[in-house]
Every structure is written in structure tokens, then in C-alpha cells.
């Protein structure tokens, strides 16, 4: 229906997560209407990110070069590792301003239903980092989901007695209503209650 390059653009945009054919079409026409400068900036940004961004050799976070900005920062505490599922999980932890250690990105979470086993994650690499000797505490910050909990248990088994292991606390989100809390979350909030 459209000239072939437009159809190709719609098809490529339609491959993005959460983008259906109609949205892809709307985005394609937006790109067609936008200035050459804006459209080429988008194309360059996509090319650049694919050419220059890889994974950190140490922690598997996104990196421009062999080591990510966090691993190369001499001000970060080298005794502390925070284990997360995906690179995007690093951002919210950094935003808190409460954490000054290093990270380890697993690349997913254990899920027997989806066939994701320990060998599919970077757990061996984490164990090797701990065995290297500098690490004193591993903070397990996998998602508080069933797969995230299963992963946390597995890591706990692998690293038990080798290092101090901690897990992010579970509880009620700030500003939430108690009446909407589910029983498991509220139960954990009660277990982890603190004196005021």
C-alpha cells in the first residue's frame, strides 16, 4: 500500500515490544513528518548503541568498552555486590543514592516453566567473583516475584558460608493503602517490622 521503504520502516517498528501494526504506522508517519535532523539523529542513536554498547566484563552491566562506569569508578565500595536480574534494574537502585557498592547482572531469573536453568544465568561468574576474595557482602536484589525468589534461594545455596548474604526487604510501598496489600507482602512487612 505504501512505498516499500515506508512499509519496511513500519515492519521494523512493529517488531518493538508493545508496538502493534497501527502504532508502528503512526510512528513511521511521525518520522516521515519530522525534520531530517531529528530522523537522522534517531537512526544514528540506534546505530551508535548497537556499535558501541556491550556488556561489562566484570559485572555484565551495560558498558561502553570492556568495563562499565560503575566498575571503573574508584570511589565505589569493592566489598559489596548487589545482584540484579537485568541491566535496567541497576538504574532504580542507583537513583536511591543509598548504595555505593558494585553490581552483578544475572541476565534473567530462574524459571522451570520457561526452561531457564542456573546454567542460563551468570551465577557461576558471581561465585567466581566471590571466590576471588575481596567481596564481604552480597545483596540479592532480584525481583520479589516467584522467579526472583527462586533465583535468590539458589544463589543463597551456592554462596552460603562463603560471604555475608542479604536480601532486599519486602513490605508495603510508601503511599499505598493497607487494605489493598496482599497477605504475603503484609506478612513479610510484619515479619520485618522495626522499632520506632
Amino acid at each position: 500500500m505504501h512505498p516499500a521503504p515506508v512499509d519496511r520502516l513500519i515492519a521494523e517498528l512493529g517488531k518493538l515490544p508493545g508496538i502493534g501494526r497501527r502504532t508502528a504506522q503512526r510512528l513511521a508517519f511521525h518520522i516521515l513528518r519530522s525534520s531530517d535532523e531529528d530522523a537522522f539523529a534517531l537512526a544514528t542513536a540506534i546505530r551508535e548503541v548497537k556499535e558501541r554498547i556491550g556488556l561489562c566484563e566484570t559485572c555484565f552491566n551495560l558498558a561502553e568498552g570492556p568495563t562499565c562506569a560503575i566498575c571503573s569508578d574508584p570511589r565505589r565500595s569493592r566489598e559489596l555486590i548487589c545482584v540484579v536480574e537485568e541491566p535496567q534494574d541497576v538504574i532504580p537502585i542507583e537513583r536511591t543514592g543509598e548504595y555505593r557498592g558494585l553490581y552483578h547482572v544475572l541476565g534473567g531469573a530462574l524459571s522451570p516453566i520457561d526452561g531457564i536453568d542456573p546454567d542460563d544465568l551468570r551465577i557461576d561468574e558471581l561465585v567466581r567473583r566471590v571466590e576471588a576474595g575481596e567481596i564481604e557482602e552480597v545483596v540479592i536484589a532480584t525481583n520479589p516475584t516467584t522467579t526472583g525468589e527462586a533465583t535468590a534461594h539458589h544463589i543463597g545455596e551456592r554462596l552460603r558460608d562463603r560471604v555475608t548474604l542479604t536480601r532486599l526487604a519486602s513490605g508495603l510501598p510508601v503511599g499505598a493503602d493497607l487494605e489493598h496489600a496482599d497477605e504475603v507482602t503484609l506478612g513479610r512487612a510484619l515479619t520485618g517490622r522495626r522499632s520506632v
Partner: peptide, 16 residues
């Protein structure tokens, strides 16, 4: 919610 099951890695695996 089976809360005890969620605190045991092997039980999570069996349930899955």
C-alpha cells in the same frame, strides 16, 4: 497465598 512454599526454593521449583 501459600507463603511458606514461597520461602523454599525446592518447593517453588516443585510447584512450578
Amino acid at each position: 497465598g501459600y507463603p511458606a512454599l514461597r520461602a523454599d526454593g525446592d518447593a517453588i521449583d516443585a510447584a512450578a
